[in-house]
Design a binder for these strands. Sequence first.
DNA 1: TGGACTATGGTTAGCGCTAACAGGAGCCGG
DNA 2: CCGGCTCCTGTTAGCGCTAACCATAGTCCA
Lengths: 340, 340
Amino acid sequence: MGNNNDRRQPRLEDVAALAKVSHQTVSRVINNHPNVSTGTKSRVEAAIAELGYRRNTAARSLVTRRTQTIGVLASELGQYGPANTLLGVQQAAREAGYFVSIAAIKGAAAKAICDAVRHLTDQGADGLIVIVPHDGTLQVLEDLNLDLPVIVVGGAGEGRLSGAMVDQKLGARLAVAHLISLGHERIGHVSGPLDWVDGKARVDGWREELAEAGLSDELLVEGDWSADSGYRIGQQLAEQRSATAVFVSNDQMALGLLRAFGEKGIRVPEDVSVVGFDDQPESAYFMPPLTTVRQDFEELGKRCMDLIRAQVEGDAASGALVVKPALVVRASTAPRPRLS
Amino acid sequence: MGNNNDRRQPRLEDVAALAKVSHQTVSRVINNHPNVSTGTKSRVEAAIAELGYRRNTAARSLVTRRTQTIGVLASELGQYGPANTLLGVQQAAREAGYFVSIAAIKGAAAKAICDAVRHLTDQGADGLIVIVPHDGTLQVLEDLNLDLPVIVVGGAGEGRLSGAMVDQKLGARLAVAHLISLGHERIGHVSGPLDWVDGKARVDGWREELAEAGLSDELLVEGDWSADSGYRIGQQLAEQRSATAVFVSNDQMALGLLRAFGEKGIRVPEDVSVVGFDDQPESAYFMPPLTTVRQDFEELGKRCMDLIRAQVEGDAASGALVVKPALVVRASTAPRPRLS
DNA sequence: TGGACTATGGTTAGCGCTAACAGGAGCCGG
DNA sequence: CCGGCTCCTGTTAGCGCTAACCATAGTCCA
């Protein structure tokens, strides 16, 4: 009785009283200020431990004008890439003592982006990481003219906003070079939507590699990333039989393609070689196991977090940041068939 | 000159000055308090719009002791289910004016869970949604004895913590009932890890449905959710040839199974029927298209958010909440083969 | 020996907001 | 015509913390 064990949460004041110092000294200990004698420091630390004191984030934010929160704006969070990028961001953030707040949107309408950004800034996010791989995103964000660090994943880092990306063009070139090295000369491409940054970059990579080898880049069909679109395009390609190899812009569409080919009696890789993009965990178990391009999304997320932290803390200038992809060869590619 | 356009952010005080009222009146307008005359209200609203005023969350949290933040603790965020549950939570949260902060962990070690929970509570989360589908999770959380609302996804709602889940047992029974209705009598099960709540529930459903039909539940093999484990188990099953139908506990393992059967010359569904669980978007494009059980994760997430909001705001008691799954019949199931 | 400097720790103000109370205007019945 | 309502608005305090300043004692050099 008479004690105040039932007080909601201990405050600096409580710790100070127990350690017989002023609340400010406790604050100094917590924030690792110099000029606190070791004796005092350990007394304070003991008091903190005894009371189970935890600093109140709201109070701290109010006075420092920092929330230690990074906002992540993401569309398509259900997809492999974005989800894993978020994972990487979150891990790096927690290690650095930051919180991660998310805002998920569907599609990439300017209004949706603005609403989500506002939601995050309302919370007082110190910085923003944007994982919205559509073309217009960069413009929308620049127009918003935010006064906090922003990193656009997939962005190239032009303008005031920083970017971070896996080198899509390189990935595409690796895929196509692999097919060329197997002797293929008619190499088609099933692209993602061309208003997606990544989709376009992969098309460019495909084109460039073909151009350097003096091959034709006529065979281009646009998909929508879904297995369904891959399936339908695969049916078309099966009837045309115009290519001996197809570079598909993601693994899901490649899955659809594989099924369409299977139904039409086209053997992969004996008749046609197929290369995907992403290297989702399932891709090794497609029929046949898919040759594809691996992107390290988690690494990307980590690097994003490092970059934005540097910006928030004023340690470094803005810039762009590129992660390298790698080709993973499995069983869906083979040398060009001799006859046709 | 002389104006203060460059002030960082307008405060209540600034709005009040412009509208010629006290800051408290502005606060009343913002919080929709009654007893503000319509004239004053519209004057204040005009001032808010003119200055582009936005309430400071930290200051508000400090005094109300509410952060309007829900913490989501998730493992396996790279997987389809958890990612989409998070999506649903986030959407419902934003609509309700809540923020969502995440903490992702790998595995489900007690220490990892504690650290993550502490991270979230340090931020002052008003409530917690836990998406960690391992067995021990519930116990760890109960031991932590948190004094905020917690919802455990996949939990059954025993004890002080609320739960929310898709009815896994029902889903499993739907799958097995479907196979039984096709005349199958030897129905195997490739389960998920048995220390996962969902994995165990599906085993139970499989057993119960078989028992009611008077069939044997001998054929049980434990996988680890990965396509890889499905593949290896598929190879074993192919050699045994002891079942005419297999209920697989998720779509990814089913994919591995399909490939193993394909390699061994076992036709699906002519020789063996296969049913999956989850209905990932790709499952319709497996070879053959997979009959599976659909779980509406987004709906689950939304309901979680509603439930926790009710608890945070004191509107309702705790409880458990169940979402119904549905069978999706595609081409991987067929009547039992006559011979064999 | 005194002035200046350093190491340490205390005191005060205020971040931007809401809760609690105070006060004044208008209205009614007795 | 006054007490006691209701409706609206203003005043004050304080949430828990950090920044800025202040006070004291010890130290060193001229």
